[in-house]
């Protein structure tokens, strides 16, 4: 299924920490406009995949191509500038700043006003600042956070913090958005809302989204293609229906539950 039109291509990516292979020989292709799900039990290496794509780690082996150009080995901020932004599983907001500032910081890479412009308050700075503030407000509006604009990120309700993370990632004007368990800790109703929001964002910003989820049911609803990771190895890839009936997937998830039951029994 190798084709030249993929937005993101992982070629035999391996990430090794000492003796542990967190990701082993992983190959993926994500087409533009796709909402791709990456699932797997706890500790399967899903977040490591994100960290490798975004430059937090340089892969031990393999290549990562974004829009046909390699991005492996680049620093995270350089990857972000190429057009890949992300959210974090354990929310990482700028706690001491208000929501609008949080979004503005992500728009930083598109700022045109230099340091001298800022210090001497030139017309260039004023225009740039006004544009950043306006864009931040628009994004907060899309994410339904308008009423929290001036609230400190740390004082935001948990569900809203998750949304702010997405708003912030969008402010970097990505072409590929990586969402790391965006529904973690949300109740079923909030999860439902968030999933609809993600679909909306995908269309509105003409994005491609790569979504990690621990909970299979969440992904099944919105992703058209899913890859399943277990112990760093891709064990299946396909449509939700294919994944649901794949014996290897059932084993990986069932195995986990059986283990959990055993653990509870002792």
């Amino acid at each position: 299924m190798v084709s030249g039109s993929a937005l993101l291509t992982l070629e035999n990516v391996t990430m090794q920490f000492g003796g542990l292979k967190a990701v082993a020989d992983l190959s993926l292709e994500i087409a533009p406009g796709e909402l791709f799900g990456l699932i797997g039990p706890n500790g399967a290496g899903k977040t490591t995949v994100f960290n490798v794509i975004t430059g937090v780690y340089a892969p031990t082996q393999g290549r990562i191509l974004f829009e046909g150009r390699p991005v492996q080995g680049l620093k995270p901020h350089a990857v972000a500038r190429r057009g890949i932004t992300r959210t974090f599983q354990n929310i990482r907001l700028f706690a001491s700043r208000c929501c609008r500032d949080n979004v503005c910081i992500a728009g930083h890479q598109h700022a045109e006003a230099g340091l001298a412009d800022s210090v001497f308050r030139t017309g260039n700075f004023e225009r740039d600042e006004a544009r950043q503030q306006r864009e931040a407000r628009e994004l907060l509006d899309v994410m339904g956070l308008s009423q929290w604009e001036d609230t400190l990120a740390s004082e935001l309700p948990y569900g809203q913090q998750r949304r702010l993370e997405i708003a912030r990632a969008l402010a970097g004007r990505p072409r590929l958005l990586l969402l790391d368990e965006p529904a973690a800790g949300l109740n079923p109703l909030e999860t439902e809302e968030l999933m609809r929001l993600i679909e909306d964002v995908l269309r509105r910003f003409k994005l491609t989204i790569l979504l990690i989820e621990h909970d299979m049911r969440v992904v099944m609803g919105i992703c058209r293609r899913i890859a399943v990771l277990d112990y760093g190895v891709k064990i299946a890839e396909g449509t939700p229906d294919q994944i649901r009936t794949d014996p290897k997937v059932i084993e990986a998830y069932l195995g986990e539950e059986v283990q959990a039951d055993l653990g509870a029994g002792t």
Partner: peptide, 22 residues
């Protein structure tokens, strides 16, 4: 300014700041 916000972002969460292009 946007540069000051970048500094504050580093103070609050360096990893997130880096991931967002700072």
């Amino acid at each position: 300014s946007t540069h000051g916000r970048a500094l504050f972002a580093i103070r609050d969460d360096e990893v997130a700041a880096e991931a967002l292009g700072v």
